[in-house]
Amino acid sequence: MEDIKKAEYLAYKKTEVLTDKVLHYCPGCGHGTIHRLVAEVIEELDLQHKTIGIAPVGCSVLAYEYFNVDFQEAAHGRAPALATAISRLYPDHAVFTYQGDGDLAAIGTAETIHACNRGENIVIVFVNNGIYGMTGGQMAPTTLENMKSSTSPYGRDVKMMGSPMKMSELVANLPGTHYVTRQAVHKPGHVRKTKRALKKAFQYQQEKKGTQLVEIVSNCNSGWKMTPNKSNQWMEENMFPFFPLGDIKTPDDK
């Protein structure tokens, strides 16, 4: 039986836009998948030579080790501010931020909202896993009601801490945002949709259409204290109802 593991039959391989550094993410964590999709989009749109990424503080603080593009490390929550300056000073470059929910929706809320309100020509990749992962599973602005975390051990008390925030819907109301969508990467179908969304976002960015925000609801096995597959199932049953997937703002509905 013929061995088809030859270049001519290659159907899928790792993109050049990822370095060969082993990811530090926990087994089964969505960050790795999202990194790969962003990198594949950068490769397919031939943007590697003019992409500048901005890493947050959080689990993806080391994102710059994995992307084979020029990258800057932002202080916690400030990535949209860095991106604002870079995008205005290098108008033709593909500028994107990669941020978690704590980075974007807690400490960085002002930077997020104002970058979107100014319609900065950037892509914001917003990974929403409902928790502060890197620091050990604390409650985040997107932690669901009654969801346990190390700082809401008895479940999030909405009376005390307010309800989880829907940042995508919030920024979709700002005229500066052009394309806002919420996706997931835990199953093949969702991965393919997320990649299409990211590709559109980077294309719109290159067409200087303003701020593109791609939120990806993802899992956090360690923080949620579940196996990867269990966490993905829990995400479907609990996160998706509150954070429904799909386009929230598309270019034609201005």
């Binding site: 400030r78 501010a81 860095l82 300056a85 870079i86 002002a110 104002h114």
Partner: peptide, 18 residues
Amino acid sequence: QAESEVAAINMVYGAAGA
């Protein structure tokens, strides 16, 4: 004009880093 001095210094950071 940034939304705060915090945002402004981080815009400077991004620009300088480039």
